[in-house]
Design a protein around this nucleic acid. Sequence first.
DNA 1: ATCGTATATCGTCGTTTTACGATTAATCTT
DNA 2: AAGATTAATCGTAAAACGACGATATACGAT
Lengths: 102, 102
Amino acid sequence: MKKSVQPETHPGSRMDSDVFAKICKALAHPARIKIIEHLKAIDQCVCGEIVKILPLAQSTVSQHLKCLKEAGLVTGEVEGPCTCYCLDREMLKQFKKMAGAL
Amino acid sequence: MKKSVQPETHPGSRMDSDVFAKICKALAHPARIKIIEHLKAIDQCVCGEIVKILPLAQSTVSQHLKCLKEAGLVTGEVEGPCTCYCLDREMLKQFKKMAGAL
DNA sequence: ATCGTATATCGTCGTTTTACGATTAATCTT
DNA sequence: AAGATTAATCGTAAAACGACGATATACGAT
C-alpha cells in the first residue's frame, strides 16, 4: 500500500509533471527500454547478462543501469561479486498509471 | 572493443524500443508534459497561449513545440499570424498502448 | 596473499538539450 | 505603405547525455 510520490502541492492539481518527466527521461533511450523489457521477462539478472545482450561497453551499461536505478525503475542488490538487478514493478505500475492519465 | 551503433538486431523489438524511446524523450521535460496536458484540456490553442502559461521565453516554448511536433504528438496549423496547435490523440494513444505493454 | 572476475566509477570527448535574446517572416490593421 | 503582432529561426552559452577506455573496488577462489 505504498501510495508513493504524490506531493499534491496544489489542490485539484494534475499529476506531477516533474515526476512523470523524470521517468520518461529514464526511458528515453532504447538501451534502457531493452533493459526494462529484459528484466520484466526474466525477473532478475546480474549486470553481466545485460552487458551480453546489449551492443555496448560494460561501463556504458553500468551507466544506463544507474540511470534506471536513480529513476526508481530498477533496484540493484550486491550479491557477492555480482550485482543483481530487479525491475521495480511498483514503480513501473506508477509510470503506466501516469501515462494512462495523460 | 568498439561496438557499432545499431547493426541489425531483431527487427521487431528494436523498432519498438526506438519508437517508444523517441516518444518518451519528447515527454522527458516538464514543460512539454504541461503543454500536452493543456492541449488535452482545451483541445487546441495558439502558441501565444502556451507561452503565457509557461515561465519560459517565447523562443523556448517554440522549441518545445517543435520537439513535440517532431515526435508526432502534436500538430501545428498556421492560421493567419498565429499557429494553432493540436494534440494528436492517436499518437498519444499509441504511446499509452506502448507504455501499457511495457 | 594473490589472482581473477564482476561492477562501479573516473576522466574524457563529442553531441545534444535547454535556455535566452535578437532577428526574420508572415500576416493583420490602420 | 507602415506599423503591430505572432511565431519560427538563428546564434550562443551552459549543462546534460552517451559512449568509451582505464582504473578502482569488492569478492571468491586458489
